[in-house]
Design a protein around this nucleic acid. Structure first.
Lengths: 190, 190
DNA sequence: CTTAAAAATTGATGTAGATCAATTCATAGC
DNA sequence: GCTATGAATTGATCTACATCAATTTTTAAG
């Protein structure tokens, strides 16, 4: 069941079988239906989520109250509300399932405790967020070269397995354009 | 001399005097003149840099060969080429001084070694990059609400100490607009 | 202080993509 | 299968910002 997850961990850190078991033991398994919310503003406990199956969207609200998609997460992705780590809440996060999904969750306080006992996990999550940082920075770069056709093509390349699974208006939101513009843009690609 | 840096570390981790000394001992001190480059493509060794004094710009190149500013770093900021950590180089980074600057550097391989000996440092840099991630994500949010006047005002709020130190064409580049547009936009603010 | 080079401003014009409105297409519930 | 609701497309128009070109202002060097 969790073979994929352990393989995923083993790319960055080497764990003993006991450590693997310890990690698995602090995870909680959930199934969420399409359209349900994993994270929403005002939630008391911060968690890390690991997607086993299905697809999630992370939305952020800006000051104008607009939702913006900042990330799609599918199988084998981690997603979390990093602001919660610092008890700082300028922006507000929603995480919504757009497909029925299976997810593992990990309470931040339990995770912090694990970091102290087994620093290898601190290493794992440091590497993970560093990669996320790089990916996010590349998104800023591509948004600065503000040609939306190129950005759409990059999106398709980057998420080939999302074709047909994610609504076009979600993709448009992610790209920062309107659904109408995306529609015209796609038309122009044939 | 390094009081500020130690204070900075102590916000996130508690170090013994010996650990503090060990950390300071692996740092190298440099002074760079205005317009010199700390990091440029093709550089063999990856480093972390800590700005003691002055101001640095991190530029990235996109596929079209255009430089885009993705970050300004002043006193007490860390800056580094995270892609180098993974030996992956899709994007190319320049870090340039726009003022005469004093900088401490830390070799990545030495740092990795330190992580194993004293995991607290892994913790420190995990927290640091998590904060950087949050800041970057907020930039994406503000770039999605693509009203450049608002974005400029946010920039001014976020970097109040850069007023007059950074050229307007650098700010325009950072915001993803032309210097002409920034000029008109600023005019409209009076 | 003078001069050259770089930065900032201003003006005129063009364009990508927004907005608003209407229509067609797809999906889900009965 | 039919109907209702949400998604996607298409068209017409508008606007923020880009681009190109010229001018003024600032900065740095001799």
């Amino acid at each position: 069941m969790y073979k994929q997850l352990l393989k995923h961990l083993s790319k960055d850190i080497e764990l003993t079988p006991e450590e693997e078991q310890e990690f698995l033991s602090i995870l909680e398994h959930h199934t969420f239906l399409k359209k349900s919310l994993l994270i929403q503003p005002g939630q008391k406990v911060a968690k890390e989520y690991y997607v086993l199956k299905g697809c999630l969207i992370a939305y952020y609200l800006d000051k104008a109250g607009q939702k913006h998609i900042i990330q799609f997460a599918t199988e084998d992705w981690w997603i979390s509300d990093f602001e919660a780590f610092f008890n700082a809440y300028p922006a507000q996060l929603y995480v919504e399932c757009i497909e029925d999904s299976e997810v593992l969750s990990l309470d931040i306080s339990v995770l912090e405790d694990l970091y102290f006992r087994i620093p290898k996990f601190e290493r794992f999550f440091r590497l993970k967020i560093t990669k996320a940082f790089v990916a996010l920075r590349n998104r800023i770069l591509s948004s600065l070269q503000k040609d939306s056709k190129t950005r759409y093509l990059e999106f398709c390349e980057q998420y080939p397995n999302l074709q047909g699974r994610v609504a076009n208006y979600h993709i448009a939101n992610y790209l920062g354009i309107t659904p109408e513009s995306l529609s015209r843009l796609r038309k122009g690609l044939n």
